[in-house]
């Protein structure tokens, strides 16, 4: 579904990605793990068009998208839920969700999509009229994910959805990500919570210093000494 080949990304003179390649198949949950500053967010931004690569290609459904702008890419069906959620604080929960349906393709069906999103996140329906700034951290993350789903994506990029949440909320968020598969939504997930991630992901890429240093099925990685030591503390 998505294939990134030999991506090189620069911030001015600082290189953030070194020859990164990655593939995602339809209906997969692919996880991207690695320490802070490894280039995970840059890779996501490069896929969603917020940052254009210096060289390399990103192919989505057979089309090169590496030079397209974010609004075109969202329209094509890739939704990027940024780190920390970044909901619109002074809009209500409902307005935030409606904003998510901003792409033309999604705008007409927004009422219907809204009901589907409320089905996934009943908590958001309860909070419908509240301003987003009054929500708890977990609710904000749910709102951010709901807003991402409002554009009716086929591929959802999630940047650390469990970051800073209470343990019970983390479990809830992971349960929801797993459910996206049944909605025929493919997921690329950045996570620090490796234990939970390995439980739901099909495949994992490990990034270090702007390079992909390891990839494989979850079981393989669980056997690897490097992952066990560095990320699971075993």
């Amino acid at each position: 579904m998505l294939e990134a080949r030999n991506l090189v990304s620069m911030y001015g003179k600082a290189q953030a990605l070194w020859d990164v390649s990655l593939t995602i198949d339809e209906a997969e949950i692919v996880a991207l793990i690695g320490s802070n500053g490894a280039g995970k967010t840059t890779l996501l931004n490069t896929i969603s068009g917020l940052h254009h690569p210096a060289s390399g290609t990103v192919e989505y459904l057979g089309q090169g998208i590496e030079s397209l702008d974010p609004y075109v890419i969202v329209e094509a069906g890739i939704s990027h839920v940024p780190e920390g959620g970044r909901v619109f604080p002074d809009m209500s929960v409902r307005e935030n969700l409606e904003m998510g349906a901003y792409p033309k393709r999604a705008w007409k069906a927004r009422e219907q999509t809204l009901q589907q999103v409320y089905g996934i996140f009943p908590r958001l329906k309860e909070r419908e009229k509240q301003l987003a700034r009054t929500l708890s951290g977990g609710e904000r993350q749910m709102l951010a994910m709901g807003r991402g789903l409002m554009s009716r994506p086929r591929l959802c990029l999630l940047d650390e959805p469990s970051y800073g949440l209470a343990p019970i909320m983390v479990t809830e968020i992971f349960r929801i990500i797993e459910r996206l598969r049944t909605q025929e939504i493919t997921v690329l997930l950045i996570e620090q919570n490796v234990r939970h991630t390995l439980e739901i992901a099909d495949r994992v890429y490990v990034m270090e210093n702007g390079r992909i240093c390891m990839e494989g099925e979850c079981d393989e990685l669980l056997q690897s000494d490097f992952v066990r030591q560095a990320y699971l503390g075993l």
């Binding site: 609004y71 940024p82 970044r86 909901v87 619109f88 809009m91 901003y102 991402g148």
Partner: peptide, 20 residues
Amino acid sequence: GLALQSIGEDESAAAHIGVN
């Protein structure tokens, strides 16, 4: 108008959700 307001509240998030 919603798009304008979203830019004021968080321009980068507005770009994320597909506002040009």
